[in-house]
Simulated assay, not measured.
Amino acid sequence: MSRGEELKELASDLSRAAERARRLGLPTTLYLLSMALVEVREAGAAADDGGDDGAA
């Protein structure tokens, strides 16, 4: 599995977790998961472009 594919899978997992946190009424958890999701999506886009922004 490529790095881009792994990042897309992680983004999907984070999205599901954020939705569950929203339903459970956990605003701080939702915020943190949302910020992580943004970072993972950006890293995934960079991986798709063949660039490496140094994000881990």
Rank of each mutant, 00 (worst) to 15 (best):
M1T: 02
M1R: 04
S2G: 13
R3T: 15
G4A: 10
G4H: 09
E5R: 03
E5G: 01
E5I: 01
E5C: 00
E5N: 03
E6R: 14
E6T: 08
L7I: 10
L7G: 03
K8N: 09
K8Q: 12
K8F: 01
K8I: 08
K8Y: 00
L10T: 11
L10H: 06
A11W: 00
S12H: 08
S12V: 02
D13Y: 03
D13T: 14
L14Q: 04
L14A: 02
S15G: 15
S15E: 05
R16K: 13
R16T: 07
A17R: 13
A18H: 08
A18D: 00
R20N: 04
R20I: 03
A21G: 09
A21I: 01
A21Q: 03
R22A: 15
R22K: 11
R22Y: 10
R22C: 03
R23A: 11
G25N: 12
G25S: 06
G25K: 14
G25I: 06
G25F: 11
L26A: 14
L26C: 05
L26S: 06
L26G: 02
T28A: 12
T28M: 04
T28Y: 01
T28W: 01
T29L: 14
L30E: 15
L30H: 07
L30Y: 07
Y31M: 11
Y31D: 12
L32H: 15
S34F: 00
M35I: 10
A36T: 06
L37R: 15
L37H: 14
L37Q: 11
L37A: 09
V38T: 07
V38P: 00
V38Y: 09
V38D: 15
V38Q: 12
V38M: 10
E39V: 14
E39M: 13
V40M: 05
V40A: 09
R41H: 08
R41Y: 03
R41S: 07
E42W: 13
E42S: 06
A43K: 02
G44R: 10
G44L: 04
A45Y: 03
A45N: 08
A45H: 12
A45I: 06
A46Y: 05
A47H: 06
A47K: 09
A47R: 08
D49I: 02
D49T: 12
G50F: 14
G50Y: 14
G51T: 07
D52M: 01
D52H: 07
D53Y: 11
D53T: 11
G54A: 11
G54F: 15
G54I: 09
G54K: 11
A55G: 06
A56M: 08
A56N: 07
A56Q: 12
